[in-house]
């Protein structure tokens, strides 16, 4: 009654999806992020209407709250990873699925499957809202630009979530992971912008959704930005898996 490796893998993925879906915090995080995002987009839209700047961009306004939005996805990643270490669930997980590398990989895959639609819906709703409010005031945008920016933003948020999950899995504790990630994304990175090269996960990843015409000098193309962020995320997930295999649960 040997089970094929493929079916075993599917089972692990389904179990990991099941785990994420039945964790109420995940849904709270996504819902709160969605509401805050809409509020902030409304604020940005009003601000750009008030300023009366010449032709505010629908995409720039709709995606203006990306820097806040990423906080929600950082939390999502940390929650997914650190929830294992609450209530001793990790012991159950590892006695049911003792293949550590495959288990943690599947957890990240399950998280990706949840994050992609969530990120897309969130970013798209922001852009739609801005498009509706700025209708007539804003410069026209090409549909392919919108799609490109939305895909870029979705990819950015998904990769950021994976990176956060990897940090969470390495640290095993919610608050330290949160302090480090928020500290980097919101304190260190904004202050050191211009001092550090654009090869850090957030600075490189930004080019995935920024429009080429957005004024500042574009150092990277969206594909280059995506590539650099992907290298960061994938290598951190790999480090997390290696450490997870070596250390005591």
């Amino acid at each position: 009654m040997s089970v094929s490796s493929g079916r075993k893998t599917i089972r692990i993925l389904r179990a990991e999806l099941d785990k994420l879906m039945t964790l109420p915090w995940i849904w709270t995080a996504v819902t709160v992020t969605f509401l805050v995002h809409l509020l902030l987009t409304a604020a940005f839209t009003s601000a750009s209407l008030q300023e009366g700047a010449a032709a505010p961009g629908i995409l720039n306004t709709g995606l203006a709250s990306m820097s806040y939005l990423q906080a929600g996805f950082i939390i999502l990643g940390i929650l997914a990873a650190c929830s294992e270490y609450t209530g001793g669930q990790i012991r159950t997980t590892l006695t049911v699925i003792p293949w550590r590398g495959r288990q943690l990989f599947m957890k990240h895959l399950a998280l990706t499957l949840i994050t992609i639609p969530a990120a897309f819906i969130l970013t798209a709703s922001g852009v739609l809202y801005a498009g509706w409010r700025l209708d007539g005031h804003a410069a026209g945008v090409e549909p392919h630009e919108v799609i490109q920016a939305l895909l870029g933003a979705t990819g950015y948020l998904t990769l950021t979530t994976l990176l956060s999950a990897a940090i969470g899995a390495l640290l095993r504790r919610t608050l330290p992971a949160l302090v480090i990630l928020l500290g980097y994304y919101f304190i260190i990175s904004p202050w050191s912008r211009g001092l550090l090269p654009a090869y850090f996960p957030d600075t490189a990843g930004r080019y995935m959704y920024l429009l080429p015409s957005s004024g500042e000098l574009n150092v990277l193309t969206p594909v280059q930005g995506a590539g650099i962020l992907m290298i960061w995320s994938v290598s951190l997930v790999a480090v997390a898996i290696v450490v997870y295999r070596i250390r005591d649960a």
């Binding site: 179990a15 099941d18 785990k19 039945t22 964790l23 109420p24 915090w25 929830s83 609450t86 209530g87 001793g88 669930q89 012991r91 159950t92 049911v96």
Partner: peptide, 16 residues
Amino acid sequence: SGAHPMRTGQAHLRWI
């Protein structure tokens, strides 16, 4: 229990 405190007992057994 080896279960996440926010999950229901049933949900815990189901993923296992």
